[in-house]
Amino acid sequence: MATTGMKVKDLSVFYGEKEAVKKVSLSFSPKQVTALIGPSGCGKSTFLRSLNRMNDTIGGVKTTGEIWIDDVNVNDPSVDVVELRQQIGMVWQRPNPFHKSIYENIAFGPRYHGIKNKKKLDEIVEDSLRRAALWNETKDRLHNSALALSGGQQQRLCIARSIAVKPKVILMDEPASALDPVSTSKIEELIAELKKEYCIVIVTHNMQQAARVSDRTAFFYMGKLIETDDTDKMFTNPSEKETDDYISGRFG
């Protein structure tokens, strides 16, 4: 299974002239959740999106530095981005299921990657939905539109969709910030479950959430990585003054 983490070295991201992420080096261990925290505009989302080169799809973004997954440098120009992205799943702030049926949302990726066998696809759909704790709620209406689900269910569907193509790493960009408290806690339980198999990187604005779900925490401020450590230590006894100020709510 996935025992792969990611290692980032001297990563900088430029929007035109503006340097949004400044020389960040950070590693993500397998079977661990790493939370990226920091005030709005600190570059944490930009950093996350550069990990699967999603920033390529916006014009005018330049990335330097190295990002290693297994022994592949993500930023190497010769890397096949399409193949790479299959190994790195992503979940967005707002649930964005495809405008298709629940079944199709999950089966879409695997089918494209070569699984045509109907029985096999059925298995993948069931397995992914079970892992995302959504199977019981959806098994009777797999062929209904995914858009009819509630926001929280849609978000779990998006997680199921991303694990259906068997990634090694899952990136989550504030996955619960658009959800109500009940749905949020379901997503958090799900993250705790998923980390048994995947390396998870989660951006969050919610300090308590970072403390609850993550093993490691990295604090970003003004595009720089200020500090990274075990979550327990970060929240009780941070080394840097800025981290302490931010965590205790003095700014941000």
Binding site: T57, R85, W92, N96, F108, G109, Y112
Partner: peptide
Amino acid sequence: VPREQKEASLALGLS
């Protein structure tokens, strides 16, 4: 078309 729809598909490793 919402950008997230496009990104979701690209992130699954689709061309």
